[in-house]
Each structure stands twice: as C-alpha cells, then as structure tokens.
Amino acid sequence: MSVHHPDLHRRVLAGTSLALGAALIITACSGPDQQSVQAEEGFPSRSIDVVVPFAPGGSADGTTRQLVAEAEEACGTSFVIRNETGGAGSVGFRSALDSTPDGYTLGTAAIEMSILEHFGIVDILPERDVQGIIQYSEQPVAIAVPADSPLETFEDLQTSENDRMTVATSGTGSIYHLGFEGMALVAGLEDRLVNAPFDGTASALQAAMGGQTDAVTAGAAELRPFVESGDLRALAVFGDPVDYFPEEVPTLEELGYDWDSTAVLGIYAPAGTPDEHVEFLSDCLDEARQSESFSEYMETTGLNQVHRDAQEFDAFLDEEYDRYGEVVREIGLVE
C-alpha cells in the first residue's frame, strides 16, 4: 500500500498545465495556411503522403498501393499511404483537402467527392476544393436481377405486371443509389422501382441473390463475378461497359436513354496545388499506370484502366457534381 504524496500531485498537475499551454501555442502557430503555394524547385524533395479514404483491402486501397509502388521510380520519391476511413469517404477526403496544397499530400479520389455535399454530409465542392490529377479506372453502374427472376430484359422492368419492384442499392446517397435514381427518372420507372438501401454493396448483392429484392444496382466490376457464375442476370449497364460485360448486355444509350453513371478511381490534390506539380505528378503517375505490373494487377483484380489526365479528371468531377445535384433535387431527397 503506497503513501499519498499531495505535493507530488501538485507538481504533476502544474507540469501538465504548463505542457498543455505550450501545446496550445504550438498548435496555434502551426495551422496550415490555405493560400496557394509557390512551386518548389526540384519537386519532390521528400516523400508524398496519400490519403486513402476507404479501408485496407478494398479496391481503392489496393489499386492506390499498387500504383504508387510503381510510381516511386517515375516520380523519384517514396509514397506513404494512410487510410483515413469513415463517413462514406468524407473523413479521408476532408483530411487530404485540408492539408497544405504543396503537392506533398494527395488522396485517392472516388465519385463520392461529387455526391456527399448534396446530402450535407461534408462541405466539398469539387470546383472550389479539388484539383484532379489522374483517373486510372472506372466502372459503370449496372442493374441486374436474380437468375430465377421473370424479368428477362430491361423493357420488362417497364412492362412487368408487378408495379412495385424493389431494387437493392448500397445505401441512400451512394453512387449506386444515385445511378439507379437517374436511370429510373429517364426511363420513367421512378414510380415502379423502390430503392432498398442496404449497408454496402456486399449486403445489396446478398439481398438480390437471396431473392429479398427484385433487382440490384451495383458497379459492373462488382456484379461481374455473379453474372458470370449465373447467379445474377445483368439487364442494362449505365455507361461504357469496357472489359466488364458480354456484348449482349445493352447500355442505356443503346436502349435510347440519355443517362450514364460511373464510379471512378483516381488521384487528386487539394485545390491551389501549383500547376507544375500537378502536371509532374499526372505524368509520372500515368507512366506508372501504363507499367506492365500495374496492368497485370488491374487485370487480376477485375478492374479496367480508363485514363483521364489532370484537366479531364478535374472537369469530370465538376460535371458529375452538377449532374448528381440535379438528381438529388428531382427525387426530393433534400429540399
């Protein structure tokens, strides 16, 4: 049993409050300034941080790790990956966008950057906040039904006697949900199809295969294994089905509807990053993207390579922001 030392406590308390004061001063002085940054001679002179907004093991994490591993040589520096997950990616996006725009903090981009703001989840305006660097992959959204479903073609959705069909999506506000809503609007199906928002793509696929719902919308890469195994039947794909589906699956465009919806993977920096650095990174990452081992990796994980350079990718994210804003307002999800 120990003896109490009142003066010991006092000393520790005094010490801690001193330290606390010092900490406050240091943090107050070291806040990142959001002004645009001067381009640096000889960039990059140290390692570059990459914020992955999703958990390790997923496609965003795996492809980013593979891409930057290839890029070490081309970009002439090492990369440090850090996973900051949560809020459908908003935590990681916010963290990378709040860092100093000097080219030393990048992030893995996903289409959610153009969506989350509409729901008031996080304040990200792609035009104001985001500088796209490169897009390296994309997968269009597609709609599929269980193998034993009476629905054989996309037209059956419109003519079926069942006028209340449920569609499993990966959560309200996710790309697969908004892709579905946009399709329903242009195809005049908004009164027949009901959004069943599951917690993630895996749960949505499970629900459709188990016959809990009449259909499912998800990314083409995620649907492909189940379409190939015959558990699901793809009815239409909402974009260019490069490398994902057999030719007989129609695109919405072929069916005569003007709607496309695509999930993307890419790299971005906070807005204000010097143009020279953006261009440098865009070029060396593109070189890494075209390397043999990265291409091989993408092939084994079932993802395609669709490239957009810095300007194209930046413009794409801005356009998508506007498009999805319209969908969200039209279906009355937010006032």
Partner: peptide, 24 residues
C-alpha cells in the same frame, strides 16, 4: 450518431465529417 444509410441523413453530427462516419 452518424450517417443514416436508409435516408442519407447525417444524424446528430453537427456537420462534422468525423461524426458522420459514426462512433466506432
């Protein structure tokens, strides 16, 4: 606390992206 995935509504988050992902 966090994003309600059924309705896409951030509950009790006060606009914080950290809270939007919920308390682990």
């Amino acid at each position: 606390i966090g994003l309600d995935t059924i309705q896409g509504f951030p509950r009790l988050t006060g606009g914080s992206p950290e809270l939007a992902s919920g308390i682990d």
